[in-house]
Design a binder for these strands. Structure first.
Lengths: 144, 144
DNA sequence: AGTTAACAGTTGATTATGTAACTAACAATA
DNA sequence: TATTGTTAGTTACATAATCAACTGTTAACT
């Protein structure tokens, strides 16, 4: 049937992208419907929820998101009163970001959902398969 | 160091996305620099290169890309003379897409690069690890 | 001190994407 | 042959991502 036997499904960048999109679809719907936030905003929220007080640059280093994305996500989350910004005393270029009570609540809510969601994705794989998968993905993501 | 022990690196949608982005970065640079095309266009090009003559809908079914994306990618590729469109005689809604000689050449060039590139990504994993990885990704991508 | 470079973060212009509404063609049924 | 529904593909509008240029601040070097 095929004209050329190159297999897109074995081309890792393509396959990874398909898996990433498919697997994030339902979760995306949840944070969108429930809080009206975007993927970028969700990520910033989670970084602050997990690591506590951080600067935009630190979030950028960890997440590899571009700084303009982060800047705009921070703006949105500030408008929604999910985080507060505080200038650093020593270095006035730097801003420390921290979740508000409302931001914390949203984070914990979504975190709970993420855990359940993640558990569902894990189903269907053995422990060993999951281990191999995680190690491989971390390596591919450059966090090996 | 952490405030909350939820691990983003174990949250599959996030981890998959990181791996997908990181792993496609260098390849993306190549098709962008060399042919000035986008990811969507690259995908359409590959579908036609692999399967030969196809319609936009068929590409959509296989790739799960949205039809508007495909429509615009086809326009761009047509402008660049990488493909030709031909109305179906029996059903005049349908358009058959086919690569031109130039499109074929671009496909073969990129296909070769993709193969080498994919091989490099595979390095560092054992055969068994790669097998598990591919099976898992296919399942997650809904192509189980 | 004065100049230059580097850095944190923002903004603006361009480009890409998603959603919904649309056109044109075909199919099914009455 | 009307009517209604469905399909292939496009377009318009609103939203989001990207890139480069920008402000304000600190660091480094002379």
């Amino acid at each position: 049937m095929e004209k050329d036997d190159f297999d897109l499904q074995n081309f890792l960048p393509y396959l990874l992208n398909q898996a990433a999109e498919e697997s994030s679809l339902a979760f995306q719907k949840i944070y969108k419907d429930r809080y009206g936030i975007l993927r970028t905003e969700w990520r910033v929220l989670f970084h602050l929820g997990i690591y506590g007080r951080m600067t935009a640059s630190e979030i950028g280093d960890r997440s590899k998101m571009h700084k303009t994305k982060i800047s705009r996500a921070v703006q949105k989350l500030t408008e929604r009163r999910f985080l507060t910004r505080a200038r650093d005393d020593g270095d006035r270029r730097v801003e420390h970001l921290e979740l508000t009570t409302a931001g914390e609540a949203a984070y914990r809510d979504l975190r709970g959902i993420a855990e359940v969601y993640n558990g569902r994705l894990d189903d269907g794989f053995s422990d060993e398969e999951m281990r191999v998968l995680r190690v491989a993905l971390r390596k591919l993501a450059g966090m090996g």
